[in-house]
Amino acid sequence: MPHTLLVLAHHRSDSLTAQVAGHLQARMEEADGTVDVLDLYAEDFDPRLTPVDEPDWEDREKRYSPEVHAHMDRIAAADDILVVFPVWWFAPPAVVKGWIDRVWNYGFAYGRSKPRLAGKRMLWLGLAGGPDSDYAKTGLDSAMDMQLRAGVSQFCGIVDSSVRLLHGTELSGVPQAQRSARVREVLTAAGEALEERLPR
């Protein structure tokens, strides 16, 4: 069965984003898959790029920081990569961008004639507060797809990749008595996205 790197990007362990990640982890493990949960906040990942992790365009064999190489090893070991994140300002949180900046680095994720990440599958699963009609009307859904699927995954050789947004996930406007039902709807939609894009 596939080994999945599940990347979680939310600062609260009780968030809906974390609930979705936990739900998907359980589903994958029930299907006899193995899951490596990379909780960027819980592991105190530093998203800031410093000179030690800056690409050296003249040396694709550069040794980056031990933290970055540990993350590279976890990516390399995965068959599937699943990133679960809240959509903030129509993009993933800064910690995800910093993870890409530091870890998906020259000589590892790109910069080779044969991409090291080719053959993996990837799903970017974002929890968006607003309705899908708003995103479609402004083109923000297409912009996120281009940025993440084309600009990161496919650029790094992961052809089988997609971006899925779960809309209407802001619960503050949902009456308290209806919130449990809404959470169940979101978890169901997340499970359907998983089965569609990363079938077990």
Rank of each mutant, 00 (worst) to 15 (best):
R48W: 09
P115E: 09
P199T: 08
E195P: 00
Q178M: 02
R116E: 05
P86I: 14
I100G: 08
D145M: 02
V35R: 12
V87K: 05
I75K: 13
E54D: 03
S15C: 11
A70T: 15
V183S: 02
A70H: 12
V87S: 03
D46H: 05
G111I: 10
D53G: 15
G168S: 03
V84A: 07
K120R: 13
A18H: 10
W88D: 10
E185F: 12
P2R: 15
A181P: 01
R112N: 15
E192I: 15
V96S: 11
V186Y: 10
V7A: 09
L165M: 14
D73T: 14
D53Y: 11
R48A: 09
L198M: 04
S153N: 06
A177M: 00
A78F: 11
G129S: 06
V174E: 04
D79G: 02
L127V: 09
G22Y: 05
V52A: 15
T169F: 03
Q176D: 09
L16M: 05
G119C: 01
T4I: 12
R12K: 14
S162L: 00
R197I: 07
A77I: 13
W99Q: 11
E43I: 05
A109N: 09
V35N: 08
V163A: 08
R116A: 04
F90I: 08
V68K: 01
P115I: 06
V20D: 01
S172A: 01
H23P: 00
E195S: 03
G191I: 14
G33Q: 13
F108Y: 12
E170Y: 03
L5D: 11
W57T: 15
E29G: 01
S180E: 12
A143C: 02
D160M: 00
Q147E: 07
G139H: 05
S133C: 04
A109R: 10
E195D: 09
V84I: 15
L127P: 02
R116G: 04
D145L: 00
E30L: 04
G191Y: 07
S15Y: 14
P86Q: 08
S133L: 13
G107R: 11
R63H: 12
A26I: 07
H23W: 00
D134Q: 12
V20Y: 01
H10G: 05
V83Y: 04
G33V: 08
M146R: 10
A143I: 10
V95I: 15
